[in-house]
Amino acid sequence: MLLANILVAGLLTGAVYALMALGLSVIFGVIRIVNFAHGEMMVLGMFGAWALNRFLHLDPLWAMPLVAAALFLAGYALQRGLINRFVARPEHMQFLLMLAIAIMLTSAMLMGFGPDARNVQLDYAFDSYDLGGLLVDKVRVLAAGGAVAGAALLWAFFRFARTGKAIRACADNYLGAQVVGLDVKRLYAITFGIGAACVGAAGSLMLLLVDVHPYLATDYTLLAFIIVIVGGLGSLGGALLGGLLIGLSEALSGFFIDPSMKSMFSYGLLILVLLVRPQGLLGRRL
């Protein structure tokens, strides 16, 4: 039963990971820019939700749409103003730009919030549901629920909305999209905004589960990469599957082996997937 508890907790955390990774997947899948500042944006989302809770006493769950909207605007502006010039540059230049952005974000958060870990006080923090002996934390259920809702919204947007379809066309065929008169610049900005909104929302939810401090960023960036590549780039289902798998793998290795070794298994999984099935578990053959 203990094992079942751990598995469920891992899966629920994995759902939040998945939403975070979705943001990365959307940005890379469409703009072909590797967002090395993804973890920083995640932590920014966490701090945003923390500030809303601290000063407006908003539950992180309700802060989520606000944080997502704010990050959408920030991501839109960033892509439009700066990153778009780097779209056709070589990878190492893009990497360097994103790195500079990441460094600035981390240091800005350090200046704004300080280096200490912050958390939110919730009256339901220690509640749990008892499902016939299976104990499930309430916060985890809420966080996972929020993540699934966010992912569903994203899916609906790409599936049904005009803009979402246009973005998909852009990702499939850059030249073709230009030829039929789509405003690629604007669509890219919207895409980056959506990616940022996803990770911001995931950050708000993650605040339900962990404390936040500025130095978490690099770990989240790497985690997002692992998930996206394991699941398959540009595949919504892939990001979800990857997030759940990594959540599970972290929970299991933390329980059976040593919590400090949990990310080693994630990296091992990444290496294995890159070598054996580089397009990811659910990725299309590129």
Partner: peptide, 19 residues
């Protein structure tokens, strides 16, 4: 005595050079 200011400026210089 401002934590992080050094890194912020470092990142800024980096971004300027890259651009």
């Amino acid at each position: 005595g401002i934590d992080g200011l050094k890194q912020l400026l470092y990142g800024l210089v980096l971004a300027i050079v890259v651009v």
